[in-house]
C-alpha cells in the first residue's frame, strides 16, 4: 500500500500497448486527448486517432460506426461529459451490442479543482442500467493494467471503464490475481464485517480495516471492480460469513455500487448493510484526498461507520 501512480498516465501507455497488438484498435476523443493522455496513442498511430472536436454525442455514434465497420474503438473522455452521450450509448452502442470501449477518466472527485460541473458521481448508475454493457471500476493502475487488454482485445461487446485522473494510491500492486469479467476479489480476509468498494476509495476502505483491527475488529475488504455483471455468488457468500456489509463508493449512493450490492442481498440474503458515498454535488478543493475527507470517504470516517454497524446502531 504505497506509491502513487496516475490513472491517465497508465491509460496512455496501455492504449499504445493495445494499439501495437491489434491494428484495428482506434482511439476516439472529444478534444480531451491531452487531458486523458489519449494523445500518447495519437502520436504513435496518427491514422488511428480521431479527435471529433467538442462533441460527445457524436463521438459515441461515430465510435459505433467505427465498430460496425470492423475497428475496435476506444472512446476516451471525462466521465461527466460522456454522460452527455448516454442516450447515444444506449441507442447507438448497447442496443446493437457493438464492440465499443468507453474509458471515462476524471470520474468521482478526481478532477478536484474543477468542482461540481466536472465531478462525475452518477455515471455508474447510468451505465449499469444498460443491457449488454460491462462496467468496470479499477482500484489502481495495477488493476487497470490487469483488466485493460482483456476488456479491449478479448471481450467482444461494449465496456465502460471508470477511472480517476491522477491520484491512484497503490492497493493491488502486490496482490496476485487474474482479472475475469464478473468477479469480485477479496483483498483482505475478515469475519466481523465486510467492506466492499471499488476505485481509489478501496484504499480508504483498507485503511479503515487496519484501524478497526487495532480495536480487535476483523474486517474483510472486497474489491468489487466488476460492477456489471456483479459477482452474485461472492457477495452472497461473504454476506453469509460476516453478516454485515458496508459499501464505500466515490459515487452517489443512489444507483451505484451500493445499490448493485443491495439488489443482490435484498433478494438473496438480506443482512445489515450501510452505503457510504455522495448524496449531493461536489465542489472545488486543493486535492482529491481533501475532497474524500470532506465528504466522509476517508479511512477514519469509514471506520466510524463500520463501528456503528458492528454495534448495530446503523
Amino acid at each position: 500500500m504505497n506509491g502513487y501512480k496516475s490513472f491517465r498516465e497508465e491509460l496512455g501507455k496501455l492504449l499504445v500497448d493495445v494499439g501495437e497488438k491489434a491494428e484495428n484498435v482506434v482511439v476516439v476523443t472529444a478534444d480531451v486527448g491531452k487531458s486523458t493522455r489519449a494523445i500518447m496513442f495519437g502520436e504513435k498511430f496518427k491514422d488511428r486517432y480521431f479527435n471529433v472536436g467538442i462533441a460527445e454525442q457524436h463521438m459515441i455514434g461515430f465510435a459505433a460506426g467505427l465498430a460496425v465497420a470492423g475497428a475496435i474503438p476506444v472512446v476516451t473522455g471525462f466521465a461527466t461529459f460522456i454522460m452527455r452521450g448516454w442516450e447515444q450509448i444506449r441507442n447507438s452502442v448497447a442496443r446493437m451490442n457493438l464492440n465499443v470501449k468507453i474509458v471515462a477518466t476524471h470520474a468521482g472527485y478526481s478532477d478536484h479543482a474543477d468542482g461540481a460541473s466536472h465531478q462525475a458521481l452518477e455515471d455508474i448508475a447510468l451505465m449499469r442500467a444498460l443491457p449488454n454493457i460491462v462496467v468496470v471500476v479499477p482500484a489502481d493502475v495495477a488493476d487497470l493494467r490487469r483488466c485493460f487488454e482483456k476488456l479491449v482485445l478479448k471481450h467482444k461487446g461494449p465496456v465502460y471503464i471508470r477511472l480517476g485522473r491522477d491520484y491512484a494510491p497503490s492497493i493491488t500492486e502486490d496482490i496476485e490475481y487474474d482479472y475475469e469479467i464478473g468477479r469480485a476479489y477479496v483483498i483482505r480476509e475478515g469475519h466481523d464485517v465486510a467492506i466492499m468498494s471499488a476505485g481509489v476509495v478501496l484504499y480508504e476502505a483498507l485503511k479503515a480495516a487496519e484501524d478497526l483491527a487495532k480495536l480487535g475488529i476483523s474486517a474483510s475488504v472486497i474489491n468489487v471492480l466488476n460492477v456489471k455483471p456483479i459477482d452474485v455468488e461472492a457477495i452472497v457468500s461473504i454476506a453469509k460469513k460476516t453478516g454485515r456489509i458496508v459499501v464505500v463508493e466515490e459515487h452517489m449512493v443512489f444507483g451505484g455500487i451500493g445499490s448493485a450490492i443491495a439488489e443482490v442481498l435484498a433478494q438473496k440474503y438480506p443482512v445489515l448493510m450501510r452505503i457510504i458515498g455522495a448524496s449531493t454535488f461536489g465542489r472545488s478543493a486543493k486535492s482529491h484526498e481533501e475532497l474524500l475527507s470532506y465528504y466522509g470517504l476517508d479511512g477514519k470516517s469509514i471506520a466510524k461507520t463500520v463501528l456503528e454497524v458492528i454495534r448495530n446502531r446503523a
Partner: peptide
C-alpha cells in the same frame, strides 16, 4: 429510432 444517431454512425463507418 433516436433521431440524428444514424448520421453519426454513418460518419464513423465512412471514416473507417
Amino acid at each position: 429510432g433516436s433521431l440524428a444517431q444514424g448520421l453519426s454512425i454513418g460518419v464513423g463507418i465512412a471514416a473507417w
